[in-house]
Amino acid sequence: MKNFARLLAKEIKEILRTYKLFVVPGLFLLFGLTSPILTKLLPELLGSMVGEIGISLPEMTWVDSYAQFFKNLGQLGLLALILTTMGTIAEERNRGVAQLVLTKPVPRWAYVLAKYAANLLLLTLSAALAFGAAWFYTDILFSDTIFLAGLQATAIFLLNTAVILAVIILASSLSKSTIAAGGLTVLGLILLKVLPFLSDFLGKYSPDALGGYLVRAYSGAPIDSALWGVAAFSLVTIALLLGAAVWVFSGKEL
């Protein structure tokens, strides 16, 4: 357990001292700052573009601002996360750094889980920072902004991304090449999308259902108690994915 803490400290130090510190939190913060402003300016921008045709656009609200923010996070933010994390194990294995660490009294589970924990921490801080900025500008630019709706949506976004992060870690432990790990991550994400179609139970509780709850949350719509079931199933999925990552990596030759 002590070496898990030491590896985690090393991972955090690595994040603080490499480009990773700027990419994920930087990009997330950028979305937090720009999404409300762009949403506010969108009718004016579109209006100036269509000119005299005279299309009338509905007035944007805080819900649109949140929607834009979470859409950006879920697309480009996720892409940045995949690109910066897919090589976390694969690259160290390929370069031989893992050999140096794992010939010391370090259990392989600690090595894998420290990477997950550090990236999850980075993700949580990035999302919190970005949401803080998004809420601040949304509240200034739009009336009646509901803080709690955005906070709930951020929590759901984080849970969904924690599942994706576990997929990335599993993919990275499966492969020795960063590119292959990226490919396997995409394959894993496709499988997560397919999962709900396999049975009614999975349709209701698979992590993919978090997307629907995210929309409901930031819209301020009531959320039914089935969310807890989805959250529990997502946590089980994370545990299974990380268990698989540890199992796969423990059997890998270095």
Partner: peptide, 15 residues
């Protein structure tokens, strides 16, 4: 026995 041994690989790579 990992506590009691040391290892230098042929091409050592570090952080």
């Amino acid at each position: 026995y990992l506590n009691r041994i040391g290892y230098l690989p042929d091409v050592p790579n570090f952080y």
